[in-house]
Design a protein around this nucleic acid. Structure first.
Lengths: 337, 337
DNA sequence: CTGTTAGCGCGTTCAG
DNA sequence: CTGAACGCGCTAACAG
């Protein structure tokens, strides 16, 4: 609550001297410094970063806007972001959009007003609006996890096409021919890309792709549950399920259980996104694991480099490989076909 | 990047008129307003919240300082915090302390400098230092999840004593007499309180409490793993394990599996903190579940009430009940004893 | 080594 | 209905 002026008065010097003491800038006599330091300690003075930011046009604050911090994939990203930011003396404001473009727009607007130095954005939909908005306001952005079309930005994401491809190929290798993919909204690039990978694997195997096997729903448990019910209603019934993210996988598993179907005996299952080892008792799902923590780190480092003017001129896109982890849920090779 | 002055010039009015338009305050002629609004849209002007905050001494920003956002218990709290904050027009800066008091002190210092309006704190240790610091700087605090001693603050937490008591009583009811509790550092109040509940249940059952059964370690998987190894080395070996948090539980489970012991047949197990249903395939652990989301909500509402000067004069402590959820890991009643 | 002046962007006060 | 002047807390530039 105390201001620099009060400290100055109390110490019998000018505000400038106090400022120099605080920032170790310029010259200060030993005596003056000691007196000022004493007064600072005594009054519990803390410099006002707002005023400083107003002058320097630097808040040392980043923003992380994502769909839902509750999803361990994003939690892990957040941790990577915060670690790097903190190491560089930055703080992080976070916000959940729940995939809503309105909520996203509101956040971005406020964050720009608050003069955050940069934004890490998991865009709700694959539209270029939000990025364009930030750019026009001079706020550097790094797009995380998802692509935005027609808009070259710095970006970091996992290789959804590759993951979708490999997961599908794995199932094909086990003999599955009717694989349903439970994906997210087609407007979300990761959902689309995973479907693209799935298609590619099918095509490469010379199979044609039955469009009824491609389902779109919410990237949440409820979505997985619903899509699974739809998939089970198909004839012939799929022999394998590909869940496009971790929440969908859980929902799908629930739906299967409720239908008294056993994984992997009755149906095989694979999913995108692994759960952190600290959260699983018995690893069960075969997954394409994205390096979430590294994604957060990498994106933040890119952003900070931009801020420091150290980045390359051209926009940079980093696509990190995903790792296929084979566990129980994909089952053994199909027999009798 | 555009300033209010630039807008004013371009619109041929004074900055004050622009200000009035932005804030819908005072009177403005229809014509002036229209022109100003046009210029604002045209230039993409966004008011600078820093300058505004400097005047109003209000940043509309809260801070959430916790040990590790990666722990789903804290993630869920964070979501509750952010939801309420956002609904009231506040943003949230978060920071991970990893239970380190130095990291915590650094965060608090910076956050005070940044003039956050209030802090939600999960204190690293049960010391009054951090709270006193914030108070002396005039920053309202609500302490989350843990107690701080000798220091009346607003606080919200789950009832660790009750949870510890009921979980222990449950095991006793199943016939267990040698129950090892794998707890956190004794300086963390939740760790201490859960042990207190454990003790109370034992005492009430007329059993005396073998001190070797009370283990302290890190509130992480590694801690759970180590403590379990220690517990298994005891003679006679405990017949049940009480993990003081979710991470410890996972570590314990791993250690048991590595020792080729089966839960609940060889050893029963209960734990504090449930995992969100969206993350579990097969619910297995018997737990004391804390209402994490509500804790975050409640704490934030209390903080905002304080900021609005609406809170009660006296400091308020909310202790939320925990819910015992009985699943497989606690097993059936012991036989043959 | 130290103090004065000026201004970061905004909004309130008080005259027009 | 509108504008000029001042100050929020801080520091760079420039005297002294």
């Amino acid at each position: 609550m105390a201001t620099i002026r009060e400290v100055a008065e109390r110490a019998g010097v000018s505000t400038m001297t106090v400022s120099r003491v605080i920032n170790n800038s310029g010259y200060t006599s030993r005596a003056a410094r000691a007196r000022v330091e004493a007064v600072i300690a005594e009054m519990g003075y803390v410099p006002n970063a707002l005023a400083r930011s107003l002058r320097f046009k630097q808040t040392k604050t980043l923003a992380l806007v994502l769909s839902d911090i509750t999803n361990p994939f994003f939690t892990t990203i957040a941790r990577g972001v915060e670690d790097v930011a903190n190491r560089h003396g930055f703080n992080v404001i976070f916000g959940n959009t729940d995939e809503s473009e309105e909520k996203q727009a509101e956040y971005l607007n406020v964050l720009v007003q608050k003069q955050v130095d940069g934004v890490l954005l998991v865009p709700a939909l694959s539209t270029e609006g939000p990025v364009a908005f930030l750019r026009s306001r001079g706020v550097p952005v790094v797009v995380l996890d998802r692509r935005v079309p027609e808009c070259s930005t710095d970006g970091v994401r996992g290789d959804s096409v590759q993951g979708g491809y490999e997961l599908t190929k794995l199932l094909l290798g086990l003999g599955h021919r009717r694989i349903a993919i439970l994906s997210g909204p087609p407007e979300v690039s990761t959902a689309a890309d995973r479907v693209a990978g799935y298609r590619r694997a099918l095509a490469e195997a010379g199979l044609n792709c039955d469009p009824v096997l491609i389902l779109h729903g919410l990237l949440r448990q409820a979505g997985g549950y619903q899509m699974t019910q739809q998939a089970l209603a198909l004839t012939p019934r799929p022999t394998a399920l590909f869940a496009a993210n971790n929440f969908i996988a859980i929902g799908a598993y629930r739906a299967l259980r409720d239908a008294r179907l056993h994984v992997p005996d009755d149906l095989a299952m694979v999913a995108f996104d692994d759960l952190p080892p600290a959260l699983i008792l018995e690893p069960f799902l075969t997954v394409a694991a994205q390096p979430a923590y590294e994604m957060g780190q990498c994106a933040t480092e890119m952003l900070l480099a931009r801020l420091a003017g150290k980045g390359p001129d051209a926009r940079q896109e980093v696509v990190l490989p995903v790792e296929i982890i084979i566990r129980c849920s994909s089952g053994n090779p199909l027999t009798g076909e």
